[in-house]
Amino acid sequence: MKGFGVFVVFCLASASAALQCEHRIPKIPDDWIDMNSVCVKRIKSHVMEELKAAMQYMAMGAHFSRDTINRPGFAKLFFDAASEEREHAIKLIHYLLMRGELTSGVSDLIKRSLMPSTMTWSDAASALRDALQLEASVTKKIRDIIKSCEDETDFNDYHLVDYLTGDFLTEQYQGQRDLAGKLSTLEKLMDKHGALGEFLFDKKLL
């Protein structure tokens, strides 16, 4: 009995010495995980595309909030766009998680070489033009993903394709229409009244 007591004390002592930080990884059947690996890879790299777009918008926001540029309306528009692009990246991550992906290799999902190529713009119209081009290139990339995930002979990923078409493409087309409309209005305003046009339009964006 005495020996048992010593044993219990020893067990308690050793238990408090080391924390049980790691635990068993359960075995879960994985036949429900059906995404094509090529598709997964493409979505993963699109997460990066969205974050790159976010940082490009961030550079635009930073440029237009400068004191010597002073276009707070445009700065707001672009900062909001940056956060929206980040949300898109997070939406894609959530989608992959729902489909049983991203159980490993998460650390490599985001590369920090997101630095935007352009940091200054001659005027607001040229930034809007760049933004529209950026959106168009993102749209094209989403379409490419849809195409390749639909064309797989062994596995047509109906759900992913539907999600990308319904959610992402809708947002892309709405966003592009919005940017194109803004650019058009701005260009018309600036036709005869360059500086005044930009000044007024910027205040309208606030």
């Binding site: 359960p26 991550i93 998680l97 991203l102 159980t103 998460v106 985001i110 920090r112």
Partner: peptide, 18 residues
């Protein structure tokens, strides 16, 4: 920003089904 991405990845890790 750098650490914001780190935390996003850590959140992602805890969001997987395992």
């Amino acid at each position: 920003f750098f650490r914001s991405f780190d935390f996003l990845l850590m959140a992602t890790h805890y969001g997987n089904y395992i």
